[in-house]
């Protein structure tokens, strides 16, 4: 059990969850955490699984609001209410030589999980500055860090690095998770260059199990869609995702 700060506003928590691991089937899946017993903050927080080892799960979270800040104050021995595993997984990543993983912010969590499975893969991690990074920039090991201000790794967004990595692979495949602007950029690069790509998206959720219909995401428009339909225009991130192919979804 551990709850440690990794970088600026970025924390990692490891806890025992044998029942969840029993049903866990791969990187991309998430859990939903109820941090506060009181009703001040009613909703669970969906968080990607960053690692599974023995009977422990790790998550990576960003301290942004009251809930995640109180999560950061928890100690080994405390207990939290966790629902999961939820959602689908990344697929087709088995050949690591061709897999390029892209992560940003807490979107790094599922990418680290996937990175562990495909050891030879390339991972590109984006952040604004060096203080948001906690790994070392080490291109020879396939780990590329980028920063907006160039304070560590390669200056700029993840996209130029992604481009050069794609050029170096025979049959490149992209797997990405991060803030929406990053996913949008990865998506348009992937579609333009016709590279098979899977995106793990974030969303506000009330239930995490397909009941509330709250976490709708727009599907890419298809021809001939009828006016009165159900789930032809929107998918639910919690049960249809969080992993979607780049062709499937549209960010507004």
């Amino acid at each position: 059990m551990a709850n440690v700060q990794l970088a600026k506003n970025l924390w990692s928590m490891k806890f025992k969850a044998p029942e969840i691991i029993e049903e866990y089937f791969g990187a991309g899946q998430f859990i939903s955490i109820l941090v506060c017993d009181t009703w001040e903050h009613p909703l669970r927080r969906p968080m990607s699984i960053a690692d599974v080892k023995g009977d422990c799960i790790s998550i990576i979270y960003k301290t942004v609001g009251a809930v995640t800040k109180s999560l950061a104050k928890m100690h080994p021995g405390d207990s939290i209410n966790v629902l999961g595993p939820l959602g689908n997984t990344f697929t087709g990543w088995e050949d690591g030589r061709d897999s390029i993983l892209v992560g940003g912010g807490v979107g790094l969590a599922p990418m680290l999980n996937l990175h562990k499975m495909v050891k030879t893969s390339t991972i590109i991690i984006g952040a604004r500055t060096s203080e948001e990074h906690f790994l070392s920039h080490s291109p020879q090991e396939g780990i590329f860090l980028t920063t907006d201000d160039g304070s560590i790794g390669i200056r700029g967004t993840v996209i130029p690095t992604l481009e050069s990595q794609v050029m170096s692979k025979q049959n490149p495949k992209i797997f990405a998770c991060g803030p929406e602007p990053m996913l949008k950029a990865v998506q348009s690069f992937a579609l333009e260059n016709q590279i098979p790509t899977q995106l793990s998206v974030e969303s506000y959720m009330a239930c995490g199990i397909g009941i509330c219909q709250g976490c709708a995401i727009k599907k890419t428009e298809k021809e001939g869609i009828m006016r009165q339909t159900y789930h032809e225009k929107y998918d639910l991130v919690c049960v249809n995702g969080p992993v979607f192919s780049a062709e499937e979804v549209t960010f507004d």
Binding site: L43, A216, I217, H231, Y234
Partner: peptide
């Protein structure tokens, strides 16, 4: 059938 409103919904 109804698709519902665009996100964000909750």
């Amino acid at each position: 059938p109804r698709e519902g409103n665009p996100p964000p919904r909750v």
